[in-house]
């Protein structure tokens, strides 16, 4: 039987959730506000910023005029989607093996993979930089796709492993008894059942790759620089660029924000997959 909830309690909960939501969203909102202010107004005290009357889109036109936004955007799309796709191609068979045919040390392997995420990236910057220099893939999209796939791979495998474990092994066994090959088993039986989980894994990794700023700044210069480098070009300790920096940030986060908005149902469904049996 459902618990009865009083109206005042409902109001309180809604208010609390609303406030919390606003607090989390506030930095984004503030960036949007600053992006429509002049540089002089943008650096004023917060209340002065809110009540200053001048609203202008000049920062957007200045950013458009000075930077090649489409080039950075395209690089971000290729890098984020490319690394996620490549990651899924490797992670799906790996997670399948760990979930359905676990070996004696599968758990150790899983923990070891996760432990690589505990290493500060700067610790391997020089070796990777040297390897990339020798392979001639510095400042290339393929280089970034590969490195971002590598750093996100443990998360992809872990997430898929968790989803796959929720799927009854008997279903796969039945498919096998009906004569399905391993490839058919994964593509026609496992994949359709795990689509919510795979979709949320893909979305989360696209967001992670889109926002990644250490490797994308350190391994690129002019050609493969994505939107993180586009934002970084408006940051300066000498000179007023707050409004332009905000405009660049809005332009950089807008695509991923829209993607997140339209796929939030899928994302939540995937993230809570298996929470209730």
């Amino acid at each position: 039987m459902a618990r009865s909830v009083t109206t005042s309690r409902k109001t309180m909960t809604t208010l609390f959730a609303g406030t919390l939501g606003l607090l989390i969203f506030f930095p984004v909102l503030w960036i949007v506000i600053l992006s429509f202010k002049s540089e002089g107004d943008a650096i004023k005290a917060p209340l002065e910023v809110l009540f200053s009357t001048g609203w202008t889109a000049e920062s957007y036109s200045a950013v458009q005029a000075r930077s090649d936004y489409p080039k950075h955007f395209l690089n971000s799309v290729v890098i984020a989607f490319g690394s996620t796709l490549l990651g899924l191609l490797i992670a799906i068979p790996a997670a399948w093996a760990m979930a359905f045919v676990p070996a004696k040390r599968t758990k150790h392997v899983l923990m070891w993979m996760l432990s690589t995420k505990m290493l500060p990236p700067v610790g391997v910057l020089i070796p990777i930089y040297l390897i990339y220099r020798d392979l001639g893939i510095l400042d290339s999209r393929i280089g970034l796709v590969f490195v971002l796939m590598m750093i996100n791979l443990p998360i992809i495998i872990w997430m898929l492993f968790t989803y796959f474990r929720e799927i009854p092994g008997e279903v796969l066994e039945a498919a096998r008894m009906d004569g399905a090959s391993l490839r058919e088993e994964i593509i026609h039986v496992l994949a359709p059942m795990a689509i919510p989980g795979m979709a949320s894994t893909a979305l989360l990794n696209i967001i992670l790759a889109w926002n990644e700023a250490f490797w994308t700044l350190n391994l690129t210069s002019a050609k493969a620089a994505p939107l993180t480098a586009f934002i970084a070009s408006y940051s300066s300790p000498e000179g007023l660029f707050y409004a332009k920096l905000s405009a660049a940030s809005v332009m950089a986060i807008a695509p991923i924000l829209v993607l997140g908005w339209f796929s939030q149902k899928q994302l939540v469904r995937g993230l809570t997959f298996g929470a209730v049996k």
Partner: peptide, 13 residues
Amino acid sequence: NWVVLEENVLRQR
């Protein structure tokens, strides 16, 4: 080709 970065990021890069 221009690469514009914040002072400290540029120094590290």
